[in-house]
Design a protein around this nucleic acid. Structure first.
Length: 573
DNA sequence: GCCGTTTTCGGCCCGACTGTTTTCAGTCG
């Protein structure tokens, strides 16, 4: 049972407790635990084996024993018992916008509604109108929520939303009464997926700003429209919120709407201990019965009020950043400007779009000091991969072109497939002619943990391999990665001077932030690569850097932030 | 259910908007 499944079970327990209207703090405890397990960088099973489960804050006796039971037997008595009380279909209704546990519980008890079709039928029958507190709008909202759910489920990938977000900001910037604009939420924290866009602005004329926003040509539907808060659904299906605050509250609002929720809760708890109140309007000090505002224009006011330095948004996941800030041990995070070279690039020698020279020209434009051309060597037809003969020609071609290029070091590289048995698709006598060898898996994804681990370890042991690309093979929201024993891989990679890749393509982001953090703790070096298949995709680098930042990486952890000499030294084995 | 440099019991973050109400519960983030 993987961590995601376990987290799902904890959330399901919380859902049931909510519908049953149990103690809300119990519910929060289960949800909190679910989030902890979901963000755990290693297998829960490993954590349990190491005896570290009970050391995690937020996991107490009850939940810990439930987790142990789940890992051991795939079931847990408490869960088995409780899930019989509320049908699965009822829980599913909680996914409808505007429907919470009270309403869902009410429908189930009063009308035996346990599925969306039944709920739809009920809303259309107008039977609800006879009940006090329910009117026509409520009925319409239920039907609208079902329609929206059917059209669009789940979160959007950051990379697909990024250009849209930029467009919205550009449009809002044209309104004179709007001063500051910032997209907050998981977008500002650079989460790999975003559920919605939280846009924060300051404006002298909130009504004008709100009207402009809700009537943008990108808007499909208006859901909420108040004087300071509005919410719309955009044409691609994502929700976007606009909040308008005054200038002197901007910092507090920025912090508040950036989240994460759990991070905010921790900060506000600290504030309570100092007899302060923090909300989206500012930091307030208690004076008798009144509260006096003592800050909030700048985001750092919030942190300062609770005795902390400013914490970068990427770290605000309630995963140790507050303690690190208290201990003055926050990492000095890597930034996009630190990247000296991109060493995973494809050209039209395999499945890339541009030729070698066009690729080099783009690298020069980006100001890189070095790059590696790394076309596929693979039996897969779709990759147009190099075989032995073409690989030799390819090497000669790059060498011929690089003679004519100045100011940037061009490395001859290859991304060679790792076969099922862990051997590489090219023989060592060809690999030894490359400056840099990336090994990666492109087929045979269905492996158990031991097989996958062994396959990667064998590749790492090859004396010519420098980098393992997209180490888990996942595609976000499409394909789970193969399960690997991360400790073993890390240990072997460290020993063999092999770097693990952070693949910056926004559909991959592989390693992910939690794995990156674990790799850092394990002392493995990493490399951030765009895996660009055309020159426009060089831009993906920022998403990879974001993953590195979310994984607490500093410059020294990432070999392509190093000067050329040090980089070459690392890949010379 | 979890937690503790005021606590092993008694707390647990905070406010806007909606839809239906005449003062508020439910939902959301």
């Amino acid at each position: 049972m993987d961590n995601k499944t376990v987290a799902g079970i904890l959330n399901q327990i919380a859902d049931i407790l909510e519908i049953k209207q149990e103690n809300k703090f119990k519910i929060i405890a289960y949800r909190h635990a679910a989030q902890i397990i979901e963000n755990l960088p290693e297998d829960l099973k490993t954590t349990i084996q190491k005896g570290k489960l009970r050391e995690i804050g937020g996991i107490g006796e009850v939940i810990a024993s439930c987790l142990e039971e789940l890992i051991k037997t795939n079931v847990c008595k408490h869960w088995e018992k409780i899930k019989k009380q509320i049908p699965r279909g009822v829980l599913n209704l909680l996914n409808l916008s505007g429907l919470g546990p009270r309403k869902v519980g009410f429908f189930y008890q009063k009308f035996d509604i346990d599925s969306m079709p039944k709920l739809k039928k009920l809303a259309k029958s107008h039977r609800l109108l006879k009940i006090k507190g329910w009117g026509e709008k409520s009925e319409k909202n239920i039907l609208r929520a079902i329609e929206m759910y059917e059209q669009n489920q789940g979160r959007f990938l950051l990379g697909e939303i990024y250009p849209l977000a930029q467009t919205i900001v550009e449009k809002l910037k044209k309104i004179k009464s709007i001063n500051q604009i910032e997209i907050c939420g998981s977008f500002r924290r650079w989460k790999e997926t975003v559920g919605d866009l939280d846009i924060l602005i300051t404006s002298k004329n909130p009504v004008e700003a709100t009207n402009f926003f809700t009537t943008l040509d990108l808007v499909k539907k208006i859901i909420v429209c108040g004087p300071t808060k509005s919410q719309v659904v955009l044409k691609n299906g994502i929700k976007a919120d606009l909040r308008v605050v005054s200038q002197n509250s901007f910092g507090a609002a920025l912090h508040y709407f950036t989240g994460s929720k759990n991070h905010n809760i921790q900060i506000r708890k600290l504030a309570l201990g100092k007899k302060l109140k923090i909300n989206e309007y500012g930091v307030f000090k208690k004076n008798g019965k009144k509260f006096i505002k003592i800050g909030g224009e700048k985001e750092k006011d919030v942190f300062q009020a609770v005795g902390l330095p400013w914490i970068p948004p990427e770290l605000r996941e309630d995963s140790g950043e507050i303690k690190a800030a208290q201990d003055k041990s926050l990492p000095n995070l890597i930034s996009l400007n630190d990247i000296q070279g991109d060493c995973h690039l494809h050209t039209n020698w395999s499945d890339g779009k541009n030729n070698i020279l066009e690729t080099i020209t783009m690298a020069q434009k980006k100001g890189y000091k070095y790059i590696a051309i790394t076309d596929h060597a693979s039996p897969l037809v779709v990759t147009n991969g190099l075989n032995n003969q073409r690989a030799l020609k390819y090497i000669r071609a790059i060498k011929a072109i690089r003679k004519k290029v100045k100011g940037i070091k061009i490395l001859v590289g290859v991304e060679v497939d790792i076969k099922k048995n862990g051997d590489l698709y090219l023989p060592n006598k060809i690999l030894e002619q490359m400056d840099l060898v990336i090994a990666s898996i492109h087929s045979g994804f269905k492996m158990d943990r031991q097989t996958a681990t062994q396959r990667l370890i064998k590749a790492i042991e090859n004396p010519y391999v420098n980098i393992i690309a997209h180490p888990t093979g996942r595609i976000i929201n499409e394909r789970d990665g193969y399960p690997v024993d991360f400790d073993k891989i890390s240990e072997k990679a460290k020993k063999s001077k092999v770097a693990l890749e952070i693949n910056a393509h926004w559909q991959r982001l592989d390693l992910d932030a939690n794995q990156v953090r674990l790799a850092k703790e394990n002392g493995v070096k990493m490399i951030i690569s765009s895996d660009a298949h055309n020159v426009n995709s060089f831009e993906s680098m920022k998403f990879g850097v974001a993953v590195a930042r979310k994984g607490w990486l500093e410059k020294n952890n990432v070999i392509n932030t190093w000067p050329l000499k040090n980089f070459l030294n690392f890949i010379k084995k």
